[in-house]
């Protein structure tokens, strides 16, 4: 969707990491380490889970140009499986999260394989329809608890030692997960593999003519994205001790699109800023009920009409450097 800027090419060919990205990363980590001492940790954990979710989604839309309108399926399944594993099977927290992540990854293989059979607008519609199928499955399957969801999931002990019932301990665990996911995505998009993804985004026919198989690359990116979305969902389930139908509903798919769009499609830090913005907004406007939907809709419209680069995209444009 975005075009490759001169800065991006320079960054990709240059030795080492671009300095402005290192600076931004240090600022982000510093802020995230200090934040729980100033703000409510549960709110911050929500931001981190959605930030990871949005980063995972951005890997597809920003770097392969694929708009998945059904990412709630992987987020939600990750959430359900982790909650079920922790509560019913009594798995340790870290294994429950891994189970949720793995199931989301498998779902990503199947759905990704189906969806990449069509392109452009059909891809978006197929991912949305498949996700709706997962929603109905979650509504009917016995293990998801239907309308009630899976409640009072135990947070447990990390590696059997650290008690995660403390919000602060849980926060730093979530922060570690988020940073691992974030750095992994950064590594992927700056690897030769990531360069091929961008080539496919810009000109699929040309990438094919150069001997790459776009479908293999698209599917790999799709599975990575779905897996990380599942990781975000699984972590969210442990944090809130709840997995519910909200996690698999299409409006969740819409929210992650909105977060990424607000922060900046195809930017490294955009999804994080977008998630922070939207979660904060939802938090403050929660008492206004349906107005949240209206405001989200209006933000969508404004972003598409006048603000397509997003917050970080605009800053990067001013700096003329990729962020």
């Amino acid at each position: 969707m975005a075009t490759v800027t001169a800065g991006e090419i320079r960054a990709a060919t240059h030795e080492g990491l671009p300095r402005q990205q290192v600076v931004a990363f240090v600022i982000m980590v510093g802020a995230l380490v200090a934040a729980p001492f100033f703000f409510y940790p549960v709110f911050l954990m929500k931001v981190l889970c959605f930030a990871l979710f949005a980063c995972a989604f951005n890997l597809l839309i920003g770097y392969v140009g694929l708009l998945s309108f059904g990412h709630a399926a992987y987020f939600g399944m990750g959430s359900y499986v982790a909650a079920h594993a922790a509560k019913v099977w009594g798995l340790p927290t870290e294994l429950a999260i891994l189970a949720g992540t793995a199931v989301a990854g498998v779902l990503g293989v199947v759905f990704g394989w189906l969806a990449i059979k069509r392109q452009g607008i059909y891809f978006a519609m197929i991912t949305l329809a498949l996700a709706q199928m997962v929603f109905f499955f979650s509504l009917q399957a016995p293990f998801t608890g239907g309308e009630d969801g899976i409640q009072s999931v135990p947070r447990g002990h990390l590696f059997g030692v650290i008690d995660l019932r403390s919000d602060l301990a849980m926060y730093f665990f979530v922060l570690a997960i988020f940073l691992m996911g974030f750095l992994f995505i950064y590594r992927v998009i700056h690897s030769p593999f990531g360069q091929v993804l961008k080539a496919i985004r810009e000109n699929e026919a040309r990438a094919t003519s150069l001997g790459y198989r776009p479908d293999h690359y698209k599917l790999t990116a799709f599975v990575l994205s779905a897996t990380l979305a599942g990781l975000a969902g699984a972590t969210k389930a442990i944090v809130f001790q709840l997995a519910s139908l909200t996690d698999v509903h299409w409006s969740m798919s819409g929210e992650v699109v909105l977060m990424t769009l607000v922060g900046g499609l195809g930017t490294v830090f955009g999804p994080v800023v977008g998630a922070l913005t939207i979660v904060t907004m939802q938090n403050y406007l929660a008492s206004f009920g349906a107005w949240v939907t209206v405001i989200q809709g209006v933000i969508f419209i404004v972003c598409v009409m006048a603000f397509r680069r997003g917050v970080i995209g605009e800053i990067a444009n001013v700096l003329k450097k990729p962020l």
Binding site: F69, G120, I121, V257, W291, V294, G297, V298, F300
Partner: peptide, 26 residues
């Protein structure tokens, strides 16, 4: 939006749908 990637049309109309549904629900 016609000159842009057609995905923006999808995003715009999605936002419009949210807005209209939200307003009438209110």
């Amino acid at each position: 939006l016609y000159k842009l990637d057609h995905l923006y049309g999808l995003l715009l109309t999605f936002g419009l749908a949210l807005t209209i549904q939200g307003l009438l629900r209110n």
